[in-house]
Simulated assay, not measured.
Amino acid sequence: MSFESLGLSHNIISSVKQLGYLKPFPIQEQAIPFILSGKDLMGIAQTGSGKTACFVMPILEKLQVEVVKRDRNIEILVLVPTRELAIQIDEVFRVFTTNLKREIKTMAVYGGVSINPQMKGMLGVEILTATPGRLLDLINSKALSISHIQHLVIDEADKMFQLGFEDELKQLLALMPKKKQTTLFSATLNDKIEEINQLLGIKPVVIEVASEEANIDHIDQIAYHVTAESKGPFLRYLIKENKMTQVLVFVSSTRTADKLVDKLLKNKIRAISIHGQKSQGSRRDHLDYFKKGDVQVLVATDLIGRGIHIDGLPVVINFELPRSPLDYVHRIGRTGRAHDVGTAITLLTDEDLHHFSVIQKKMGKTVTVKSTDEVNLHGY
């Protein structure tokens, strides 16, 4: 099945192709037509299954033909349990707006940072991704209204209840119109999800997609135990001592990507970054530079990294761990393709060790974690 057959316009498909995706993920094949038709939907799919683009594409498809609104009434609301997920989803929306017929303003809001810039930036926002607590704060401050919501998305709905968001969710739903399209995604179908459906008063179409198992048998996996302070110098040590000429480095945020590139350049390592905050032209050019060998290191976030296909890529380095084991598999799967032997290196601080043990368990493989205590990082 092609993206064209899902009912998406050329504008959306242009962004899809620029990201390097060749065909829809299973969850996208099944869910996008239902979302485009306006039906309520419950998608059961693991993180890393393509579910974010699954709702991003049809939402933007509909909005691009609507009249621009310059007020504080939010039309599309995406509720998420964590700050990290809010940032990630907003980044996906921004990437897919590149080729649309008109500009669509998106924004992510979450706690832990000053509320004032979020209040000031709310005018004209059409798609808001938010954590429940901060959204309520903004509503109480009269910074926005959700009384005109047309489409509500709840991502990681199971975690909403696990993390104790029931009260906030009830307060928010009471402020929304009863008539709206609702799309939910969850890793599992359980009693808590049924509670949410009852709370929402919907009987959604349910789509469940099993996770795909990637073949990572041709990838040599190595992990190094580092301190937070030595992680940057050790990365530079690995690149220089092993004379790496082409290495893809994964990080968790656009900010880290740009900061890491600055450090690499200052240490005479040719590096560039690629992420959702860069223009489509910049992303394309940077990927071309990397493929041609004009730069040694390409630093990428998961969003862009999943669409990168480079024949014979020898090394992938996880500078930071991804949120899910499936994302980890997708990352390291950029190397060792077509039965080539590839190397995947992961840098772990003390805080990463437990999460990495979960990744290994889910992956069904044990990765040796090597000490770096004896490595002399002077000059790196």
Rank of each mutant, 00 (worst) to 15 (best):
S145T: 14
L169G: 03
K170R: 15
K170L: 03
M160G: 07
F185L: 00
M176V: 15
F165H: 05
G133W: 01
I154R: 01
A187F: 03
A157Q: 02
K178I: 11
K180F: 11
H151T: 15
G164Y: 04
S145F: 11
Q171R: 12
L152K: 06
H148K: 11
L136M: 13
L138D: 04
A143E: 08
K180M: 14
P132T: 11
T188K: 13
A187N: 07
Q171A: 02
Q181C: 08
L184Y: 01
A187H: 05
F161C: 09
L128V: 15
L175K: 15
E166N: 06
Q171M: 03
L175I: 01
T183N: 07
S186L: 09
G133Q: 01
P177E: 11
G133R: 01
R134T: 03
E156R: 05
A130M: 12
L175Q: 14
F165Q: 01
F185V: 01
T131V: 07
F161D: 07
K170D: 00
E156G: 10
F161W: 12
T182V: 15
L128T: 11
K179D: 07
D167R: 06
A130S: 15
S141G: 02
Q171W: 00
P132N: 13
M160W: 10
A157S: 08
K142D: 04
Q171G: 03
I154D: 07
H151A: 07
E156A: 03
P132D: 11
A187Q: 09
A157F: 08
R134L: 01
K180W: 06
S145P: 14
Q181Y: 07
K159G: 00
A187I: 08
S141L: 10
L173S: 04
E156C: 09
L184P: 15
I127K: 06
L138S: 07
L172S: 03
N140V: 02
K142P: 03
D137R: 02
L144K: 09
I146K: 03
S141M: 10
L144P: 06
L136K: 08
K179A: 12
G164L: 07
E166M: 13
F165E: 00
I149G: 09
L172A: 13
D158Q: 10
V153P: 00
K180G: 02
A143G: 06
E166D: 10
L152Y: 04
L152M: 05
A174L: 05
E156N: 07
I146W: 02
T129F: 02
V153G: 06
S145V: 13
Q181W: 08
L184V: 13
Q162F: 08
A157M: 01
N140T: 01
D155G: 03
P132H: 13
L144S: 02
H148S: 13
